[in-house]
Design a protein around this nucleic acid. Structure first.
Length: 859
RNA sequence: GCGGGCGUGGUGGAACUGGUAGACGCGCCGGACUCAAAAUCCGGUUCUGGUGACAGAGUGUCGGUUCGAUUCCGACCGCCCGCACCA
């Protein structure tokens, strides 16, 4: 620039101005059933829980999604980009207890705050579709879906031992128990028997597993995590006859994945909860004591850490159907009642746990697997649980393990003692929660008629507002009148179900509701079948299993009940990394906020007291560690575009990004620099389009069009950090004094105008400001198409080619593009003549446009 | 323990199917502007030696394949994530 005047871009007026302009133009509104003829693109970020204020994780998540939405819109797609609130959940009840406000008013106040913050970010959302899952209009439709699932055979009510969280007074799904503790409260989970509602996700275990193969745009590791969670295994059920029946039970059936090792049996072990264990305990105080010991262990962390295998010999014996020999029956603490049949046959040779158990209780360790027929070990020090050859095993001897499995199963089937079985780790989804702030389960319990669906005419079942939280437990249960209703079947006095749905139910179909949020039915089939699947879903890796698996199941269940016409809801998934920050502690070990810390050459100091501060690890931003930065404060100071640009810069989006002050300042500097550059170029004389472009002008045009291609590719690939780098590069090339050459003037204008478009997905306000300065009256960038790279400028006519001697770089030469060996070699030879002096060339390698390599040896 | 991933300058990270390692940003150093500072602009910045052209080393470590390896293979070291008594 000719002057050093430091013009600053005034985002405080520009950002609200352009947000209002977009709103007035209705650019981000989509139709439920559009007739535009454009291809559709549904972009969705995982909707937020309205906890109070938005955090940096939200800023990153919604910026990533918005980049995709704006880019696809500019590229000619009809884009659906909605936003809503995952609004049910325990925090609202906790807040209600502390603040004496109702969960509803607390939640809706938070929504109002957070909506305002998201709007300040300039996200290209269709706000007309907004809803919260706690709106009766939403959860009422959810109740209809549940009743359809029930009618469709996808719901079961059973007594079940559940994970009871003694702090939150609620049942947790197995998936919500982490290390034997409640995933939210952290309290050790207890076992309790309750009558519960279940969704039969296990009916879809195989389909959910198979479906993963048709999701090429999902991260491999998420698919792997789901695969492991579903946990498919192939094996056999084998029935062992007891030598003498006990308590009317004549046999025990075990599940095994290793029927090939049945000749290596040493014992049979049953879970402490197994029916036979109970029978034994009735007549044996020692057995009863052992069961009590196992129950006390429960699923607590201590039990897992203890890891010591314990057993109790029942004195019973069973007969192995393959070899006719008898074996002892043990109760063992490492056998799980929930998995398989709750009983195993112990083969120490083929399983490490069985080996440990046999060694501890001095049980036999027969050798039935060997690395080869010639190398049968004398004695084992550990199990041989891999592939091998079966030995000492009657008709199976000599077979590789893979072939021995079907052979063993065939024989078991012939004997009527077993059959091939598939097993799944996945368990049915318990959806009942004993809490108030959730969607009421639309069921009425009648003493005479049993559980009855609430009639359609009485839906939605609305949560009462007049509830109290002065005692633990479920306020719906305490409410004086709400639950008392007549039975819809017989009219007698009956009671409502007072449990509410797991909030994962709410988030299992919201993406479908967004396609027609005001429909009188759960979905509008035309809309939902037009817009689904979500083309790009963006969210945190923490939802890799639970939410995504439930949503995939729910979509299948909705397909079965006629609410949608597809099985997989999310065609593309992107999982973003976390936003991290340094953490700080004062001399007393208290966590400090970043704004309480100043960095000095002597180290970090407390801003107020000047006391030394310990700089801790870089960790995920969290309130407890106080290493948070409030997005609202950042937007106040630097504007939304700076915040957006920063979270997109530097790091690949799937990795964690560290929030640093210097990084934000750098992003902010670029915002102002680009603005000044645009104003300067806008003030340059406008040149006529030249006939041809030569020299600098041609080079600049090549860079501009290469940048269009590179940025487009980067946005397609979610490598937004590379898009940022290419934009920096092009803007860097534009710096410097304005030229006199008309061709270059024209090319500069093209470049800056292109930049306005290229930055628009990331910094939409700045893009509008620049575009308005360059092309007054040409409308909004957001309404203009994405630039197209001119193929003529993507081809290069000259290439710098490296010249190596024995694989070491010795020079470079400028060659015509595509130059073959006949052209390249003589020039290259000359360029590295000094390195070739006194050498004999043994071999010449020429890869056009890449490299020339001379292999030499001393002459 | 099982499964998956990752190790590149001071730093975040680039590098297409093996082909000039370090794009771009941050930081740092120097310069311009200024009485001065901030802001801004320009230049430099892998390490070692040399004023310099240049030479040598270099992508966790050790080996291998290749004309050529950050990239492929093997072993090891370190870090991260997921699952975890799943028969």
């Amino acid at each position: 620039m000719s002057d050093t005047e430091t013009t600053r871009y005034d985002f405080t007026t520009a950002e609200p101005h352009w947000q209002a302009a977009w709103e007035a133009a209705g650019l981000f509104k989509a139709a439920d059933t559009p007739a535009t003829g454009k291809p559709k693109y549904y972009v969705l970020e995982m909707f937020p829980y309205p906890s109070g204020k938005i955090h940096m994780g939200h800023v990153r998540n919604y910026t990533l999604g918005d980049v995709v939405a704006r880019y696809k819109r500019a590229s000619g797609y009809d884009v659906l980009h909605p936003m809503g609130w995952d609004a049910f959940g325990l925090p609202a009840e906790n807040a209600a207890r502390q603040r004496k406000t109702g969960p509803a008013s607390w939640t809706y106040a938070n929504i109002a705050t957070m909506r305002g913050e998201l709007k300040r970010m300039g996200l290209s959302l269709d706000w007309s579709r907004e809803f919260a899952t706690c709106d009766p209009a939403y959860y009422g439709q959810q109740q209809k879906i549940f009743l359809d699932f029930w009618a469709g055979g996808l719901v079961e009510r059973r007594m079940s031992a559940v994970n009871w969280d003694p702090v939150d007074h609620t049942v947790l799904a197995n998936e919500q128990v982490i290390d034997g503790r409640g995933w939210l409260s952290g309290a050790p989970v207890e076992k309790k028997n309750l009558s519960q509602w279940f969704l039969k996700i296990t009916d879809y275990a195989e389909d959910l597993l198979e479906g993963l193969k048709d999701l090429p745009r999902w991260p491999e590791r998420v698919k792997l995590m789901q695969e492991n969670w579903i946990g498919h295994s192939q094996g056999a059920d084998v029935t062992f006859a007891l030598t003498a029946p006990v308590g009317g039970i004549a046999s025990v059936t075990v599940y095994t994945t290793r029927p090939d090792t049945l000749f290596g049996m040493s014992f049979l072990a049953i879970a402490p909860e197994h029916p036979i264990a109970r029978v034994v305990a009735e007549s044996s105080p020692q057995a009863a004591a052992f069961l009590a010991e196992c129950a006390a262990q429960g699923t607590s962390e201590a039990a897992i850490e203890q890891a010591e295998k314990k057993g109790f010999d029942t004195g019973l014996r069973v007969t192995n159907p393959l070899n006719g020999q008898t074996y002892p029956v043990w109760i063992a603490n490492f056998v799980l009642m929930d998995y398989g049949t709750g009983a195993i046959f112990g083969c120490p040779c083929g399983d490490e746990r069985d080996f440990e158990f046999a060694a501890k209780y001095a049980l036999p360790i027969p050798i039935v697997v060997a690395p080869s027929v010639d190398s049968i070990p004398e004695k084992l020090t550990k199990a041989l649980d891999g592939e091998g050859i079966i030995v000492n095993s009657g008709f199976l001897t000599g077979l590789p393990t893979a072939q021995a499995k079907p052979a063993a199963i065939a024989e078991l089937e012939r004997l009527g003692a077993g059959k091939a079985v598939q097993n799944w780790r996945l368990r049915d989804w318990g959806i009942s929660r004993q809490r108030y702030w959730g969607c009421p389960i639309p069921v009425i319990h009648c003493a005479a008629c049993g559980p009855q669906p609430v009639p359609a005419s009485q839906l939605p079942v609305i949560l009462p507002q007049d509830v109290t939280f002065d005692r633990p437990g479920n306020p719906l249960d305490h409410h004086p009148s709400w639950k008392h209703v007549p039975c819809p079947q017989c009219g007698a006095a009956a009671t409502r179900e007072t449990d509410t749905f797991d909030t994962f139910v709410d988030s299992s179909w919201y993406f479908a509701r967004f396609t027609a949020p005001h429909a009188a039915t759960p979905t509008n089939l035309a809309a939902v079948n037009h817009w689904l699947p979500v083309d790009q879903y963006v969210g945190g890796i923490e939802h890799a299993i639970l939410h995504l698996l439930y949503a995939r199941f729910f979509t299948r269940a909705m397909q079965k009940t006629g609410h949608v016409a597809l099985a997989e809801p999310f065609a593309g998934l992107f999982t973003q990394g976390m936003v991290t920050h340094e953490s700080y502690k004062d001399t007393q070990g208290n966590w400090l906020y970043p704004e309480e810390v100043v960095k000095t050459p002597e180290g970090a100091k407390h801003a107020g007291t000047g006391e030394p501060v310990t700089v801790g690890r870089i960790e995920k931003m969290s309130k407890s560690k106080r290493n948070t930065v409030d997005p609202g404060v950042i937007i106040d100071r630097f504007g939304a575009d700076t915040a957006r640009w920063f979270v997109l810069s530097d790091n690949p989006p799937e990795r964690d990004v560290e929030w640093t002050e210097s990084g934000v300042l750098g992003a902010n500097r670029f915002v102002h620099r680009l603005y000044r550059l645009a104003l300067a170029i806008a003030a340059e004389p406008r040149a006529e389009t030249p006939e041809t472009f030569t020299g600098e002008a041609k080079k600049l045009r090549q860079l501009t069009h290469r940048t269009i291609a590179a940025v487009s590719e980067a946005l397609d690939n979610f490598t937004f950090n590379l898009a940022v780098a290419r934009i920096y590069e092009l803007s860097g090339a534009l710096a410097g004094a304005s030229p006199a050459d008309p061709g270059l003037l024209w090319a500069r204008f093209e470049a800056i105008e292109t930049l306005a478009h290229l930055i628009a997905p990331m910094m939409p306000h700045l893009a509008e400001e620049i575009f308005a300065a360059l092309r007054p009256g040409a409308g909004l960038v957001a309404a203009n198409p994405w630039p197209k790279a001119d193929a003529a400028y993507l081809t290069v006519d000259e290439v710098t080619v490296a010249v190596q001697v024995n694989g070491k770089l010795r020079g470079t030469v400028l060659l015509p593009a595509g130059a073959k060996a006949d052209v390249a070699l003589p020039i290259a030879k000359q360029a590295v003549a000094s390195a070739l002096l006194g050498q004999t060339i043994v071999k010449e390698i020429c890869v056009p446009d890449r490299i020339v390599n001379f292999v030499v040896k001393p002459a």
